[in-house]
């Protein structure tokens, strides 16, 4: 069971916590460990769709979720990330569509395994 692997990412996965350089103001995501001159920084969760696809041949563990929408999202603060789009249909999605972060269940590692939570994005709700 890969417990530590998921646990150590919790701040980034659950609440999109990246890092900010207080000197330059630069923001990065994902956070990189070990450098003290970068400080934890919660990103706004706002972004736009850079590109997207519908995954119809899922990897192991996601058979019940497929087909699902995968996207690259350009975050308002600059970094780009890969995440699923949820609560929407492919017909609603276009490149540059504004989206917002939600925390969802990413993986169910089985009856004796962990539930892995993390960020997904959806079209803005209001």
């Amino acid at each position: 069971m890969d417990l530590a692997k998921h646990w150590r990412q919790r701040a980034a996965r659950y609440r999109l916590e990246g890092q900010r350089n207080p000197t330059s103001g630069a923001v990065r995501f994902p956070p990189e460990p070990g450098e003290t001159d970068w400080q934890p920084f919660a990103l706004s969760g706002q972004g736009t769709v850079y590109s997207f696809t519908v995954v119809r041949q899922p990897p192991a563990g996601l058979a019940e979720e497929a087909p699902y929408i995968l996207a690259m999202v350009k975050l308002a603060e600059g970094p780009m990330i890969t995440a699923q789009l949820t609560d929407c249909d492919p017909e609603q999605i276009t490149i540059d569509l504004p989206v917002e972060m939600v925390t969802r269940r990413l993986r169910d590692l089985g009856p004796d395994g962990l539930l892995v939570y993390g960020y997904k994005f959806r079209p803005q709700i209001s």
Partner: peptide, 13 residues
């Protein structure tokens, strides 16, 4: 609930 939702995800939002 959608397939990626549960009490925890709804509570968070």
């Amino acid at each position: 609930p959608g397939p990626d939702e549960d009490t925890i995800t709804m509570s968070i939002e």
